[in-house]
Amino acid sequence: MLAQLLGLVARRLFAASFLLVGIVFMTFALSRLLPGDPARMYAGARATPEAVALVRQQLGLDAPVLTQFQTYVAALAHGDLGLSIVTRRPVVEDVISFLPATIELVLAAAVIGILAGTVLGTWAACRQERLPDYSARGLAVLGLSLPDFWLAILMQLIFFSALGWLPLGDRLNLDTLPPPTVTGLLLPDALLAGNLPLAWEILRHLALPAIVLSLPLAGLLTRTTRAATIEVLGKDYIRHARAKGLSRRRILVRHVMRNAMMPGVTVIGLQLGFMISGAVLVETVFNWPGVGRYAAQAIRAVDYNAIMAMTLILSCAYVLINLAVDLAYVWLDPRLRS
């Protein structure tokens, strides 16, 4: 039993490491396929041929491809992803400084999406073919169809321009100092510092981007939860629980929701991965200082090192999220263990 479980976990880990190696290889291949001459780009347009040759030598671009790959992997192993051509800083430093903002945003969006999806899906299933069902299903399909960068702009128009309830963007007001860094996430840090007004301000900044980013997850999770709940409601053990005289709420929480959440776990994992793409767009609109905005800026500035580094980092994050979900699934569903 335990051996089987370990075998399953080992297989998942092996598959994930295969994918990670593949990702490293693909990003390397992409970075060597660049149409222009990276050495010339790096040296600048006015550099003499000698200077370009020197840069090429310095960057190791004159070595055989296999040697270049070795150098690339060796550098990666040391956490070296090259210099950003725009900021002239190591890309890794840039990423580390922008990462907490993205983590805070994605976590907030995940919480909102999971809560909304589970509640709406369950509610819709309990009131099948009635108003709650129709509205939940309508919201679900909207969440999957509306372009998030557009929705972000609309939200700004409504809640900033028209109503004036929420700020336009950024993590803080321009003249506010961030709380002392403990976790790097502003909201927990402000709460740890006991600064409630600051926490409120942070929350107001976080609200719109997090809601927009959470919508695809909320939509898909609503659908999945609804379908799974309908299926579970028809099961014999639910009838049995009813016959035993258990209260509606107890049946719903202990028997229905626990079993109906399983397919949702897959959706959550998949959508957390998609949020990585979504963050690039949403952060751009809300001027959110995270890695997504950094990636978008790198693309606009044609900063190849930063683009490749971001591809590598975001893809690895995606693989690791999916691995975590796979393992969570094994943990949640006893049937997979036997």
Binding site: G22, G273, F274, V280, T311, S315, Y318, V319
Partner: peptide, 8 residues
């Protein structure tokens, strides 16, 4: 499929 679609 291991890459986030939009990023790749």
């Amino acid at each position: 499929l291991a890459f986030p679609a939009l990023v790749l």
